[in-house]
Each structure stands twice: as structure tokens, then as C-alpha cells.
Amino acid sequence: MSENAPAGTPQPTSAASAGRAATGTDVPVLQIAGAVKSFGGTEVLHGIDLTVNRGEVVGIIGPSGSGKSTILRCATLLERLDRGSLCYDGDYLATAGQDGTSSYRDAKTLRAARSKFGLVFQNFNLFPHYTVWKNITDAPLHVQGRDRDEVERVAQDLIRKMGLDGRERAVPCELSGGQQQRVSIARALALNPHILFFDEPTSALDPELTGEILKVIRDLAAEHMTMVIVTHEMAFARDVADRIAFMDGGVIVEEGDARQVVDNPRRERTKTFLGKFTDGA
């Protein structure tokens, strides 16, 4: 792709391009354009455009059923778009035809492309029969076929970084929810993804455990890890994200600088939604 964004590409907001990711001429890590997705005749995404630049942290907020998780599932190939395009680092995994219908690349290309992104699930989805160590190292070794010494070094670093020292031989059921989520973040990072998606990473945790996960994500942001975070933690999203997209009813209602969207939302729907959080606080 050239430096000139083709027509129809979503415009990055001025806030984002002026943000900490001063890489305006770089190809975006992720570009989704015109994303439409239906489940059994019900359209849940009505044409979503989302661009994420290198080093950028994008928060996606919005009520349940707004399509937040669906857009992540489409971006991570767990679901296929009906219409629209999906592009990582300038490589199209799905292109939109004349009528908008998405056509995907072959299975082999898609499988190879999976190493570009990682996904952290709400329910962790760790492999219960694998130790912490094997959860983290198995895919780098047996999917990516990387050198064992190198993988073990990376795993050691991640274990330390996630504060899991001494738990390498534990199985997930022996860990707290917060620890399990940290293992799942380490598992995703071990594959060296260009972008990491979080699908409500703290929603399944007890309130006193959310802090440790938010801290891990903050640390990753400080290292300029490119991330897209679907979350209900408004204060956190405001702090950690460069840009926030507010979704409702399958569209992005408002998108802009994180503080601006949370502190001074322009759209009524955004105000109403955020009001529910601030009223109680």
C-alpha cells in the first residue's frame, strides 16, 4: 500500500496522528473498512471502519450487544466478515468486491497471518491440562517452529514481566483469576504479535484482581505495544488509550482522542452511555 490512503479508508483522527505514535507515514498495523457482519439474518455490524497505527492504543467502549466483541472476533479471524475488508501491515486478508462482499485469502495464508495478532479473552481460555510454562511455549515451538532456546528465553522474560516467577509448573486451576489472565497475556505475547487485542480482559475477574491486569496493560502501553482494548473500565480506557471508539448498535458512534471522548463526548448517545458510569462514581 502507498502512503496515500485510498479513498474509502477511514481517516485517522487528528488526535491520533498527533498522538505519541509519531509514525504517520507507516502502514497501519490494522485496517478494517466497511465491516458488515450478520448472525442468522441479524446484522450486528453495520459498516465499521477502524484503523490502528503502530504503537497506538485504541479503546473500544459501548453497551453490551453493540458489536464490540464481534469486531474483535472478525479482526482475529474467529468470525468472517460478510462485507468489507481486513488488512494487517498492508497485507489484505479479506478484500471487498464490487458489491462489498468480502473474499478471504486461502486458508494457508490466513493461518500464517495469525502470528501477526494476539487475542486475550475475557475467560482466559488457557489450556487446563498444560502447565503455565507449556501454555506459553507450546505455540511458539509447535506452531511457529521457533528455536527452543530462543523460545525459552522469551518465556522466561514474560514470566518475570507478568510476575509469575515460581509458577511455571503450576496448572491454570491452581492460579488466581488475575494470574490466569496474566498467563494468557504472556501466551499471546510469546508469539511476538504486531498487535494485541483484549476482549474485556477484566470482566471475569473479582474487582480486587482487575488492578493487576490493568497495570500489565499499562506497562505494555508504555512499551508502545499496539493494542485494541474492548473494556468497561472507563477511567482505565481514558488513561491508557490514545484513541477511543464508542460503539452502539453495530456502528462507531464517536471516535476520537481518549480524554475528549470520555470527558467531553460530542454525541448524545455517548453522553448518555458515559453518564451511567459517572453518575454512580
Partner: peptide
Amino acid sequence: HGQREAANVLGYSRSQTFIKIILPQ
């Protein structure tokens, strides 16, 4: 279902997913 989804996102092939992740459980 999350087990298959996690394996899928991590890049495991269908047969790897079944043999390594699903079958032991």
C-alpha cells in the same frame, strides 16, 4: 468452545487443536 477459539487464534492447525488441546481433555 473457547478452547478451540484460543487454539485457532494461536495458529494451531485443526489436527493440532484436536490432538493436543481437545483430545486430552
